[in-house]
Amino acid sequence: MHRHLFTAVALLLSAGAGSAEPPSTSASDTPLATGFPNIPADARRVAERLAACNHFAGEINGDGGERDKEVGVSMTGLGCATIEKDVAAIRRKYAADPTVEEALKQAEEQ
């Protein structure tokens, strides 16, 4: 699972994941490694970011060491500071789509 998460993180970072705007390439329509292929591309990107942000938040040990710094860089690149706002916006946009809500719930648990 960690290999898939890191692959997704790398793809998200290269696609400008810290933004709610879709990447400019057609890769935004390709399912990434985290397993949310059946939802709209913008919702998928937010779900993938949410899963990655939650994963990295669990890796912070609070000692300010090198690993904490690496995790901080990853979280900044993912836009974790705005993930709650972005999730709320996707929930509003797709309120009538239970598949999106289920994907977001799965992402919250990762």
Rank of each mutant, 00 (worst) to 15 (best):
M1N: 04
H2E: 14
H2V: 13
F6G: 01
T7L: 10
T7G: 04
A8H: 00
A8C: 14
V9S: 02
A10P: 01
L13S: 12
L13K: 06
S14Y: 05
A15N: 01
G16D: 02
G18P: 06
S19W: 02
E21M: 09
P22N: 10
S24F: 06
T25W: 05
T25D: 14
S26M: 11
A27C: 07
S28C: 13
T30N: 12
P31C: 12
G35A: 05
G35R: 13
F36M: 08
N38Y: 05
N38R: 13
N38S: 14
P40K: 05
P40S: 07
A41P: 07
A41Y: 07
R45G: 06
R45T: 06
E48D: 14
L50G: 04
H55A: 10
G58W: 07
G58C: 05
N61R: 08
G64I: 06
K69D: 06
V71D: 04
V71T: 12
V71Q: 02
M75Q: 15
T76D: 14
G79W: 03
G79V: 11
C80A: 14
A81F: 12
A81Q: 15
A81C: 10
T82M: 12
I83N: 00
I83W: 00
E84C: 07
K85T: 14
V87E: 11
R91V: 01
R92N: 12
A95L: 04
D97V: 00
P98R: 01
V100K: 09
E101K: 10
E102P: 00
A103V: 06
L104I: 04
L104H: 02
K105F: 02
Q106D: 08
E108Y: 02
E109P: 01
Q110D: 03
